[in-house]
Design a protein around this nucleic acid. Sequence first.
DNA 1: GAATCCCTTGCAACTCGTTGCATAGGTGTG
DNA 2: CACACCTATGCAACGAGTTGCAAGGGATTC
Lengths: 199, 199
Amino acid sequence: MALREKPGSGLELTRRFEKSFGFFWHATHQQIYRILARMVDAGDLTVEVVGQAGRPDKKVYRVTPAGERTLADWLATPAPMEQFRSDLAVKMRGASYGDRAAVLDVLRAHLVDHHVRLGHYLQLEKEYGTDPGSLDDQTRDQYLVLRGGIRLEEFWIGWVSDYLRAHGDDPATTAPAPAPTPASSPTSGPDDMTQGEIR
Amino acid sequence: MALREKPGSGLELTRRFEKSFGFFWHATHQQIYRILARMVDAGDLTVEVVGQAGRPDKKVYRVTPAGERTLADWLATPAPMEQFRSDLAVKMRGASYGDRAAVLDVLRAHLVDHHVRLGHYLQLEKEYGTDPGSLDDQTRDQYLVLRGGIRLEEFWIGWVSDYLRAHGDDPATTAPAPAPTPASSPTSGPDDMTQGEIR
DNA sequence: GAATCCCTTGCAACTCGTTGCATAGGTGTG
DNA sequence: CACACCTATGCAACGAGTTGCAAGGGATTC
């Protein structure tokens, strides 16, 4: 996978993944392990078991030339448009079949979540300095993806604010998060919870 | 499900679903059938087999009072934030591990797709008239969800345009779709293709 | 008249992803 | 010392969703 260009073990990768890909792709260690195993089968990776002092052994994975080719191919492959799918949209759409006030509550909660995230992302954005044009290619890509995250949060905030407003609610009371986390917050970030029921 | 408030059969629902939910939730007839069966088990729906002249029998599903309660409960249930997940983001992020020009091509293709969709949605938006405030609750919800679709397309267009621009590409050449489909296009709409490889 | 398509329902098999649990040694806390 | 926790890997089971295929009759087309 695009980030495995630096070798590492399953858990390491999981964490690296979470940290750098976190907000636009989440994966559990389980998934990573399984995919890693599959990729070894396919010849895209090699494994090397490394013993560690005072710790369980770990398996260090490395990308093979074939793997690099696979990756390059994948990158050049046109992907079909992504299917947007959202419980929240369903709730907005179907609000009149239930307690509208309750739905608005749910939306308001989401709104603050998105504000929090946005604040977090904006914080991260600062770390790229004032002139993104001066960054090297890889870092610029990172920056641009982060910009996407920011735009995404703005999209959500705009949308549900619209909805709330149209239903006589004042989204401004769900204030634009005042002071975000001081510098870098270790515990914060894209906190994911378990999935809810669907339909 | 939020739309099954009007009775109908599996295939009918599938089509209704596609038409009204289409762009923010896609479901195949298979899924619908299975979920329908499950909901009958759960007591949220009743079935009635209806014979038709010159056609296979169909099963008409209806929501029970218990089903309405289930739905209302679901609507009021706070859902955890949705996990954004995007191949495209991965490609942008990892473009330097492959042929960047090819990635830009992929992005350009997406850009036109999103422009097309946006055009389509804007067309639909017109049908709601000039004063959305005057709509009844249900129709307004429909309208507001459509607004979300529009915002979503704008998000995508903004994002990938940013990316292209940052990499010396001029997104304007991927022009803002000139003349959209004349009035209502039967064959167009959220056209979905099969999924591509992941990671 | 034959071929083809549509309608309706459904089965089987698969992928992707999640959750819960197990193992097995090492470290830190009360 | 016991308990909880971290690291590291992994199994088993499940749920959601997709694809391919089937059956059986009606309608359309050549």
